[in-house]
């Protein structure tokens, strides 16, 4: 009985039909609308809070239309309301298939929020590096690191919106560009990276050995430039908190 009521109630919340209340076994139904209103208002507010720059970019009316479509097609299932907007990009793709700037802007905003509460990483002592056997070294990436390939100038649009200046028109990039999002201390950051750095960071997820990174860069750039680039990248990554540990444990 209780299970059936809960199934009926959730069906009614999701589909907002007029006929279901009779299935709920309610004695007094006058206040039923309050639950439908709470459910939808809360989800809309959650999406608005998750995507403030996308909301500013699209405008209130267009954003709300996507939010309503998303709520109808993606009933919430995660343990926390904060996770509800994770697949908002799906609805943007469906409703605006020819506007990749929208879903790429959404990716940026979601990744920044996600990184904000990602697992903490220990601070690496630089003294550790002096003792590293680099031929056997494994690099540990920050748990907050997220990567994506952008086809539009969404990163520039996002920056302009955050800075409160007029954003440029949406444009396709001549060549897709890599962006990374990560958290340093308590602040999430967004940075565009070149193709070599983007590929190097992606490759580290499958093979975290420093010598594999060197080998890949040598193949790409030649012996001298490849090794030099590997060293430069590593120094930058450690400095920026993208690499948070170096170990020789196999």
């Amino acid at each position: 009985m209780l299970a059936q009521m809960q199934q009926n109630f959730q069906d009614w919340l999701v589909h907002a039909g007029n006929d279901t209340p009779s299935l709920l076994g309610l004695h007094a139904t006058r206040g039923l609308a309050a639950y439908q209103n709470n459910y939808r208002t809360q989800l809309v507010n959650c999406l608005r809070a998750s995507y403030p720059q996308l909301l500013a970019w699209m405008g209130e009316e267009a954003f709300l239309a996507v939010a309503i479509a998303h709520i109808d097609s993606h009933p919430p299932s995660a343990w926390t309301l904060d996770a509800y907007g994770a697949d908002f990009g799906d609805s943007l793709r469906t409703l605006y298939p020819h506007n990749p700037d929208l879903r790429e802007l959404a990716w940026i905003e979601w990744a920044l929020s996600d990184a904000f509460v990602a697992a903490d990483a220990a601070t690496m002592a630089l003294a550790q590096l002096a003792e590293v056997d680099w031929d056997a070294a494994h690099l540990q990436l920050a748990p907050s690191l997220r990567q994506h390939t952008l086809t539009t100038n969404a990163a520039v649009i996002w920056s302009a919106l955050v800075d409160g200046v007029a954003p440029p028109e949406a444009q396709m990039l001549e060549v897709p560009a890599g962006v990374i999002v990560w958290r340093r201390e308590f602040t999430s950051r967004l940075m565009q990276v070149d193709a070599i750095e983007h590929a190097a960071l992606l490759a580290l997820r499958d093979d975290d050995r420093f010598d594999a990174l060197c080998a890949a860069l040598v193949e790409e750039l030649g012996e001298q430039d490849g090794v030099a680039r590997a060293g430069a990248l590593l120094a930058n990554w450690i400095g920026a908190g993208l690499v948070v540990g170096v170990s020789a444990v196999g």
Partner: peptide, 25 residues
């Protein structure tokens, strides 16, 4: 209250009937 059933989570505090079955659950 309840907010979740199966894979759906309303994220709202939904009402319960006050029955022996509910009490047991």
């Amino acid at each position: 209250s309840w907010s979740r059933f199966a894979h759906f989570n309303s994220h709202d505090l939904l009402p319960l009937p006050y029955t022996e079955e509910t009490l047991e659950v």
